[in-house]
Amino acid sequence: MEWYRLNNEHDVDSPALLVYPERITHNIELAISMIGDVSRLRPHVKTHKTAEILQLQLDAGITKFKCATIAEAEMLGVCGAPDVLLAYPLHGPKVARFLALVPRFPNTLFSAIVDHEAAAGHLSAAALTAGVAINTYIDLDVGMGRTGIRPGEDALHLYRYCATLQGLQVRGFHAYDGHVREIDLAKRKAICEDNFQPIQHMVRTLQEEGVTSPRIIIGGSPSYPVYAHYPDVECSPGTFVLWDKGYGDTLPEQKFLPAAVLLCRVVSTPGPDRICVDLGYKAVASENLLERRLHFLNAPNLKPISHSEEHLVLAAPADHGYRVGDVVYALPIHVCPTVALYNQLTVVKAQRAVGTWEVAARTR
């Protein structure tokens, strides 16, 4: 029997997102082995948003985490994660919500990012009012053009400015390079080295000024194998824990296993050469082109031809043989936003659906 298939599939409502704990554990162990020192691994929890998967990471000795939302930070606090970086700019009501986590979860060290003096000043004032001190990282833009400040003198000035602010404890630099996606590992390495050199130069400059070892948190899944070999750098991949078809195709050197599978059903056969399944774009991430949203495991002869909220219409051979009610399994191309579409994950052990895990940081 194929690894993904359930022998009680007819008991599972669809669409469903199945997860396989043994494969998740394998992926966690592989990620740790790639970096050697588990204290340098700071996985992003945006991929899974799930307390049970977080607990598997904690059980493996991972103590540092990264997140993108207050809900994810809260989940990390509830689960007792020792060290949490909220790697998203804090503005408006999010500042107070973030600061409220500090006294609520005293055993968790929360950190934030800033990329502008005004944001740093506002966070400092709010922290003083709340009577707390917040670890802070300067968010760097290393080419993605999304958030952050470019490495160089302006970033050094912001670091020095933050060091003068009460309520903040500036600790180092944070950089995300999600734009680095070259399949060729040698090309990827060269780009990562070019991104890292100006950060390394800033760290040396600050050390010469007497600053004690500014930390560097950098990278995502594509660059993880590169930065894992850099000493004293924390790496923050996220997708590895569940993996997906997208990274499986573009990062061939990484041997993580797909650990999340979509289960859907044929709900109609509107023509002799087409079928319809219950996997609309409410059930699978749909930011990619139609042909790059999912990969069918047990039905490679099906090709998407239209997609709507509740339906996915597929071209099929004239003699396809599919019947209403047939179960089809697929890998998501992009698992992170696919997980965010589900309130719960269906847990699979020994090829049986045995229960569910709440996607806790989605619903808070």
Rank of each mutant, 00 (worst) to 15 (best):
R150K: 15
L168I: 09
N301M: 13
K245N: 05
P304I: 06
Y329I: 02
A163R: 11
V359R: 00
E22P: 15
K245Q: 06
G121R: 10
L123A: 10
V347E: 15
E2L: 15
H26A: 12
K255Q: 09
A260P: 00
P317L: 05
A186D: 07
H295L: 11
L165S: 01
Y161R: 08
I217A: 02
V347H: 13
R215T: 06
A100F: 13
L165G: 01
Q351W: 08
W243R: 03
H229K: 11
L302S: 06
V19R: 00
L156H: 08
V19L: 13
T47F: 00
H320K: 11
T269E: 10
L168F: 04
F110V: 09
E9S: 12
I24V: 15
V95K: 14
S268H: 14
Q169W: 12
L206K: 02
E310G: 08
R293I: 13
P222W: 00
R362H: 09
A330W: 00
F240A: 03
L185F: 12
E310R: 07
P21R: 14
H122L: 15
I183F: 15
A175M: 04
A299R: 11
E193I: 09
R23F: 08
P225G: 05
T164Y: 11
V180S: 01
T63Y: 03
E9M: 13
E358N: 11
S223L: 01
G172E: 01
R42P: 02
P270F: 09
G220D: 01
N298M: 13
A350G: 11
A285N: 02
N343G: 10
Y342C: 04
C192Q: 01
L85Y: 02
A96R: 07
